[in-house]
Simulated scan of single mutants.
Amino acid sequence: MNYTLHQLEVFLNVFEYQSVTKASEAMYLTQPAVSIQLKKFQEQFKIPLFEVVGRQIYITEFGKEVAHAAQKIIEEVKAINYKALSFQGELAGTLRIAIVSTAKYVMPYFISDFMDKNQGVDLIMDVTNKASVIKALENNEVDFAMVSTIPKKLKINRIELMKNELYMVGGKDYNHKGKWLSKGEFQKLPLIYREQGSATRLAMEKFIESRKISTYKKMELTSNEALKQAVISGLGYSIMPLIGIKNALAIGDLQIIPVKGLPIVSNWNLIWLSSKNMTTIAKALITHVNENKQAIIRKHFSWLETSNSLL
């Protein structure tokens, strides 16, 4: 046997994604490069690791055993690398963050320089809805969470990052008359909501309830991107965070519909449990964000301060 660590990583990715194409995308390699390494790895064994039926790849029982062993080997190699970096005085280990789905337009900018400067830090970032984010934080499954509304039942510390504004939006073909959308016109619009557990949905429902608006038709989608595409296509209307629709507004695919009481304004927050025993990596990230957040906001989000040009 003379297989390499790289071949183990390739096979493990093929096992996880059940696809050479998806494995190549995950590893930032070309599909032929992955196929060649997979072939060389298979040549080390007399028993098939996988079968190809049509265009679908299936891992054999033997292949699954090899994949589990490969996972353990790669984890041990990472542990060695972490220890080496630690002895050199560098940060090493895993940083775990859970963020609400619309925070994916924000959080990467606050950690990209940190990750670039600390090559020994691996990042696991789960993008989901607010309910799942808070559950992960409460169960101590993550170091940090990024949310726009603070959970009331948890004792947390936080860094306030930047404002989050939600507007009523429609597709380019909507023809609005008058300065503001009237209550009667609002009630005629088919509305699209995010799923239950989403902070955006909660904000939208609270606003509609506070205005005693009876909704005409209700649809539900489970991601901000899907919702945005639905509104662009003319399927319906929604109240959405400005942070996720900048480009669609700029090119005219979406438009802001003026409604009294909007935008809904909250703030993005990086939060963590007050009782959590913070790792060296987590403490370093807190320092990084506190020291650099204003510069990051000016560099990447100054357009929010002049957002009237998009409205």
Rank of each mutant, 00 (worst) to 15 (best):
Leu221Cys: 02
Val100Glu: 14
Glu205Ser: 02
Tyr109Pro: 03
Ile192Trp: 02
Asn13Gly: 00
Ile74Pro: 06
Val265Ser: 12
Lys260Ser: 11
Ala92His: 07
Pro151Ser: 07
Lys40Leu: 14
Arg194Gln: 12
Val121Ile: 11
Leu273Ile: 06
Val147Pro: 09
Ile159Leu: 12
Ser238Arg: 00
Arg201Cys: 02
Thr280Ser: 10
Leu95Glu: 10
Val121Met: 09
Lys155Arg: 03
Glu185Ser: 11
Met146Gly: 09
Ala230Gln: 06
Leu8Pro: 00
Gly171Ser: 14
Gly63Pro: 14
Ile271Phe: 04
Gly170Trp: 00
Ile232Leu: 09
Gly252Met: 09
Thr60Lys: 05
Ser275His: 10
Tyr216Leu: 10
Leu91Arg: 05
Pro241Phe: 11
Phe144His: 00
Asn175Arg: 05
Val10Arg: 03
Glu75His: 10
Glu209Val: 09
Asn247Val: 13
Leu273Lys: 08
Leu310Pro: 08
Leu270Thr: 04
Lys177Asp: 13
Gln119Val: 15
Gln255Tyr: 05
Leu249Met: 09
Glu165Met: 15
Lys172Cys: 04
Thr30Phe: 05
Ser210Phe: 06
Ile213Leu: 12
Lys83Thr: 11
Lys177Val: 08
Lys64Arg: 13
Glu61Tyr: 00
Lys104Asn: 11
Ile156Trp: 05
Ile245Val: 14
Leu285Pro: 08
Ser307Asn: 13
Ser101Leu: 04
Glu138Pro: 01
Glu185Lys: 11
Leu202Gln: 13
Asn118Lys: 01
Ala199Val: 13
Lys153Asp: 15
Ile134Ala: 02
Leu273Cys: 02
Val14Tyr: 09
Ile245Cys: 07
Ser223Ala: 04
Phe207Tyr: 15
Ala295Asp: 15
Lys179Ile: 14
Asn13Ile: 00
Lys130Gly: 12
Ile73Thr: 15
Lys72Pro: 00
Val259Leu: 14
Asn140Arg: 09
Val34Phe: 01
Gln229His: 10
Glu75Lys: 12
Ser198Asn: 07
Phe15Asn: 07
Thr149Ser: 10
Val66Asn: 09
Gln31Tyr: 02
Ile251Trp: 12
Gly54Met: 01
Leu254Lys: 00
Tyr174His: 08
Ala248Tyr: 09
Pro263Asp: 13
Lys260Ala: 07
Asp116Pro: 00
Ile251Tyr: 15
Lys163Gln: 12
Ile124Pro: 00
Tyr28Asp: 07
Pro48His: 03
Met107Leu: 15
Ser266Cys: 04
Leu161Val: 09
Asp143Arg: 00
Val289Asn: 03
Met27Arg: 01
Ser307Met: 06
Leu49His: 05
Leu137His: 10
Phe207Met: 07
Tyr193Phe: 15
Val169Gly: 04
Ser148Met: 14
Phe186Gly: 11
Arg55Gly: 04
Thr94Ala: 07
Phe186Met: 15
Gln42Tyr: 06
Asn13Ala: 13
Ile257Cys: 08
Lys39Ala: 08
Thr200Asn: 13
Ile239Met: 01
Val20Leu: 13
Ala67Lys: 07
Ile213Asp: 10
His6Cys: 03
Ser214Leu: 11
Val231Gln: 04
Gln196Asp: 10
Ile74Glu: 03
